[in-house]
């Protein structure tokens, strides 16, 4: 079996894998990082979204071997220790989750939206950008609110970091 190695949430990870192992399987089964979920088999629900080299990717639609040498960020690595990421805080504050299953993918997508579209997001932009993430519980109302708030809070983060 070929070997794959990558950096996941800042830590080196290496394993021999069956070539058909998907990145999400590698994360969940080899590394036991079960926060990344699988909700469909047609690359549409977005429960599996992680960041690969800083960009949101559906980890159910990427081979683990393709991610060789990549830096992966999963929901487990988003907080800074006990300090939640502003987007995580925004989801909790705005009741943007119910059963929690789609939440990791939503949050990882939300952070990626902010990286691409900035900190002042209009409602219609957020709704369009969530095309690849399905939630069955919330009706998206509070997710949209949370992403707007989280985006604004992330600009605070940047300022804070710059000041430090």
């Amino acid at each position: 079996m070929p070997t794959v190695s990558m950096k996941v949430n800042g830590k080196d990870a290496k394993a021999d894998v069956d070539p058909r192992t998907l990145l999400v399987q590698f994360l969940r089964e080899n590394l036991r990082l079960t926060g990344t979920h699988v909700g469909c088999d047609t690359s549409q629900c977005g429960a599996c979204v992680v960041h690969v080299n800083g960009k949101a990717v559906k980890s159910c639609t990427m081979l683990a071997l393709t991610a060789d040498g990549a830096e992966i960020l999963t929901i487990e690595g988003l907080a800074n220790g006990a300090q939640l990421h502003p987007m995580q805080e925004a989801f909790r504050e705005n009741h943007a989750l119910q059963c929690g299953f789609c939440t990791p993918g939503m949050i990882m997508t939300a952070v990626d939206i902010v990286h691409r579209k900035g900190n002042n997001l209009e409602e219609h932009t957020i709704r369009e950008e969530l095309e690849g993430n399905i939630c069955r519980c919330t009706g998206y109302h509070n997710i949209v609110k949370a992403i707007g708030a989280g985006a604004r809070a992330m600009s605070g983060e940047v300022t804070k970091q710059a000041a430090e």
Binding site: Q44, A56, V57, T61, M62, D112, I113, G132, N133
Partner: peptide, 9 residues
């Protein structure tokens, strides 16, 4: 095309 995550790959 697709969605933002799909467009990244």
């Amino acid at each position: 095309i697709g969605d933002p995550a799909v467009r990244h790959r």
